[in-house]
């Protein structure tokens, strides 16, 4: 009985595909706001399905959230899509700068309170992400 090398090869390919696909897929649809900028976290990461959120909230302008920096000041005309907030907002406060948690809370909670739409309480953002 001679086995063809095809089956192990196919299996190997399948395994490799799964390993490659999982991170690629999670990269594609963000379900929570990344927490890498924090040394440690105490709450569940905030629920945030990036594309679905912006579609539902009708946010076409990326710089509504992804603003830039000019002369140490915030630059709303620059579009920094894809740059993590933590690149400019560190977890630990430097005087006069907005630390990371405050940056998120002001941006997310601030808009929701203005528009009176979207979550405004701790438990409505820091909750288990809905399973897909």
């Amino acid at each position: 009985m001679k086995r063809t090398p095809l089956i192990p090869l196919a299996l190997l390919l399948l395994v490799a595909a799964v390993f490659l696909a999982v991170p690629a897929m999670s990269q594609q649809d963000m379900t929570t706001v990344p927490t890498e900028g924090f040394k440690q976290t105490t709450r569940l990461p905030a629920v945030f399905a990036h594309d679905a959120h912006n579609e539902k909230a009708a946010l076409a302008d990326c710089s509504a959230c992804h603003h830039g920096e000019k002369d140490g000041k915030r630059d709303n005309s620059a579009d920094t899509s894809g740059i993590p907030c933590s690149d400019c907002h560190s977890a630990q406060a430097k005087p006069g700068k907005t630390p990371l948690m405050r940056a998120f809370h002001r941006q997310c909670m601030g808009c929701h309170m203005d528009k009176q739409k979207g979550p405004v309480t701790c438990g409505d953002c820091h909750e288990p992400a809905p399973k897909k």
Binding site: P119, V120, T121, C122
Partner: peptide
Amino acid sequence: LAYHRIGDNL
């Protein structure tokens, strides 16, 4: 109750 997300959180 709010902390434990029991009931409608808002």
